[in-house]
């Protein structure tokens, strides 16, 4: 077999314009996805740092169901409890009464409670608030902007922010015991 191949005259190898184009296209096909992947990785990297809230609490501004605008920056000097909830969320109901009870106890003592209604409908949300007689400021998290900024994993989720505006604790799931709640509050009380 080798003899036979040897007898065949060598084919002159010339880089035709077509093959050059194929090479260019191959390079493009490799480079473009590569650049895209690097770009995505960089973007995911930066997004992650602002996603899962750590350190200083991300900006928070929302309008309550009563039309009052709440801005976290204006609450510096107070401990802030930010609770994400929804009327369709059953575990949220497990902590609703405790949150309201604690809010009533802590009102005027340097701790403020805020409720953000996540992916919900206003009539259902208002019915939920009425059902548990919730009086602390609550409002819809429109377009889930705050939820995204805080990187919540679901509802309920509660953030404990100290008077300097730093997130001290994040609780995923319902807080069902007063002792547990008080433990978190003690860390964010103004001194």
């Amino acid at each position: 077999m080798t003899e036979m191949t040897e007898t065949l005259p060598d084919v002159p190898v010339e880089a035709s314009p077509a093959s050059r184009a194929v090479l260019i296209w191959r390079a493009i096909f490799v480079l473009v996805p590569l650049i895209f992947i690097v770009f995505l990785a960089l973007r995911l990297g930066t997004a992650k740092s602002e996603h899962r809230a750590e350190g200083l609490a991300p900006a928070l501004e929302f309008t309550t169901f009563e039309g009052e605008t709440i801005n976290l920056d204006n609450l510096r000097g107070q401990g802030v409890v930010v609770n994400f909830w929804a009327s369709w969320c059953d575990p949220c109901r497990e902590e609703a009464a405790l949150l309201e009870k604690t809010w009533r106890r802590e009102q005027g003592k340097g701790i403020i409670f805020l409720g953000l209604d996540y992916l919900d409908q206003e009539p259902a949300a208002k019915a939920y608030l009425a059902e548990y007689d919730i009086t602390y400021p609550n409002g819809p998290d429109l377009r889930s902007q705050v939820a995204r900024r805080y990187g919540i994993q679901g509802v309920p989720e509660t953030f404990f922010i100290d008077p300097e505006g730093k997130i001290v604790d994040i609780v995923v799931g319902p807080i069902t015991s007063q002792a547990q709640m008080d433990g978190y509050l003690d860390k964010i009380r103004p001194k």
């Binding site: 005259p9 077509a18 194929v22």
Partner: peptide, 30 residues
């Protein structure tokens, strides 16, 4: 679009090189 152009280039290249002049010349030389 890129994929389509790539396929088009490859097919065009294959069509152009189909006569295989080297083999043809080998056949005629021997």
């Amino acid at each position: 679009l890129g994929g389509g152009l790539f396929v088009w280039f490859v097919i065009r290249r294959m069509i152009r090189s189909e006569p295989i002049p080297a083999v043809a010349s080998a056949k005629s030389a021997a």
